[in-house]
């Protein structure tokens, strides 16, 4: 039994895997996340470097999409200005559920170096859209962005799909009571 044989036939003689449908769906979802191609500022250059030959982001199963309708998650790479914030909100609303957001770099986390006198800088993209993963750094190294991707994959693979609607209905009810 060499390695190649094992690759051809991983479950010798046809095996049975036990698991929930949720696990299978989450496994599929987490390993093929397509992201919205969206560069804003300095972090976008590191983001380009991450996409290129040396770091090869596509081995995570991620493919850049230019349309928000085809994307699973959005990467906010850079400073969000007030002028841009409205566009980001539109893009976010155009994306289909389930959708995730990754905030890359100090600027989109909290305003970064522009927090004090930035009259035209939004201090954190989480003021307009919900963020799932924050990657710190100014700019973060490509390795840090990949770490963020791993975190996002982990988050997706542990999500509960079928009870989501039920839970959301409960949350909505609570909000109404408030």
């Amino acid at each position: 039994m060499g390695l190649l044989n094992k690759l051809d036939d991983p479950f010798e003689g046809g095996g049975v895997l036990l698991g929930t449908v949720e696990d299978v769906l989450n496994w599929g979802r987490s390993k093929s996340d397509w992201y919205l191609h969206f560069g804003l500022a300095c972090c976008a250059i590191e983001f380009m470097a991450m996409n290129a030959s040396h770091f090869d982001f596509m081995r995570f199963g991620t493919i850049p999409r230019t349309s928000p309708r085809q994307a699973d998650f959005i990467m906010i790479t850079g400073t969000v200005t007030l002028k841009m914030a409205e566009r980001i909100k539109i893009l976010w609303e155009q994306m289909a559920e389930p959708k995730y957001c990754m905030s890359i770099g100090s600027c989109s986390n909290s305003g970064g170096p522009y927090w004090e006198h930035g009259y035209h800088v939004l201090k954190g993209v989480d003021r307009i859209i919900p963020v799932d993963v924050y990657v710190p750094g100014c700019p973060p190294r490509p390795e840090a962005m990949q770490e963020g991707m791993v975190k996002l994959q982990k988050m997706i693979s542990e999500q509960a799909i079928f009870n989501k609607r039920k839970r959301m209905a409960e949350i909505d009810k609570q909000n109404e009571i408030k």
Binding site: L40, A41, T81, K83, M84, R87, H120, V121
Partner: peptide, 22 residues
């Protein structure tokens, strides 16, 4: 102006070496 980060306003409030990162 979609990336107008108020560089000149910041520099007026920073010392000379502090301007370099901006």
């Amino acid at each position: 102006g979609y990336l107008h980060r108020c560089f000149e306003k910041h520099c007026e409030a920073m010392t000379y070496p502090q301007c370099i990162p901006y």
